[in-house]
């Protein structure tokens, strides 16, 4: 079943099993390691991914980022939703 556009802000995104999110000291960058996949998230994505712990709801994540970067909530919400959905479709995040 396609999961697109079916989720409210109450979901708690977390990394899927066997996906690792870690800081690579050697290269000074965050990486996401998954089966046959390597993602190099940009700074904005890292801010979102660091909050995908399974404890925070999507609403919490959007609120926090909106406050921290002093940006309109609607704008942040769009970016966060798009990224979380994309990574869930790719099996990187679980919702």
């Amino acid at each position: 079943m396609n999961t697109q556009a079916m989720h409210g802000e109450g979901i708690k995104p977390r990394f899927a099993p066997h996906v690792r999110f870690k800081f690579d000291r050697r290269r000074g960058q965050w990486v996401v390691l998954a089966p046959e996949r390597l993602l190099l998230p940009d700074e904005n994505s890292v801010e979102i991914l660091q909050r995908c712990t399974g404890d925070a709801t999507l609403a919490d994540i959007i609120d926090q980022l909106s406050a921290e970067f002093d940006a309109p909530r609607g704008e942040i919400a769009g970016d966060v939703r798009a990224m979380v959905q994309d990574l869930a479709d790719k099996g990187i995040l679980s919702l």
Binding site: M1, N2, T3, Q4, E36, D89, K90, G91, L95
Partner: peptide, 11 residues
């Protein structure tokens, strides 16, 4: 791919 998004990643 479209039908199975979030279930099965297809390369």
């Amino acid at each position: 791919r479209d039908r199975l998004a979030g279930v099965l990643t297809i390369d």
